[in-house]
Amino acid sequence: MSNPESLVAIQNSFEPKIVAFFCNWCTYLAADLAGTSRIKYAPNIRVIRTMCSGRVDPQFVLEAFARGADGVLIGGCHPGDCHYQEGNYKTLRRVRMLRRVLREMGIEDERFRLEWISASEAERLKVAVNDMVEKIRALGPLRLEIKAEHFPEEVAA
């Protein structure tokens, strides 16, 4: 195993890549507001806009992890505030089930977050993003358990 010092070095130089799915009406607007308010936060997220967090197919989350994302953040309207009435509840239901699958596949809870951030909560967005970046930085890069590229030679005796 790597010694703690080199681990710290990796964590310091490691910049988590986070794919963020933001709903058009709340969290995307919060990110816009953060911009107009010149609120600074970590540049690690890449925002993909969907009309509603309910559009976020669990396949998108898996694809992001499979393609090298260290974290996935879904941002939607607060419960009761969904622009489409109840889309965010469907997101919540899927996220709760998906989280259990991800755990079994070795993906830590910190890497997959669902945040309710309304259009006016630019500050909350900042806090959520920064917090997620820090937590994932502490975890290190996502290494999917399956060694994909090569078959190991044979069973060791």
């Binding site: 009309m51 509603c52 309910g54 559009r55 976020v56 197919d57 622009h83 489409y84 889309g87 469907k90």
Partner: peptide, 10 residues
């Protein structure tokens, strides 16, 4: 349809 896409994801 208002285009939320919830059904698409489901």
């Amino acid at each position: 349809c208002k285009g939320c896409g919830t059904c698409v994801a489901a």
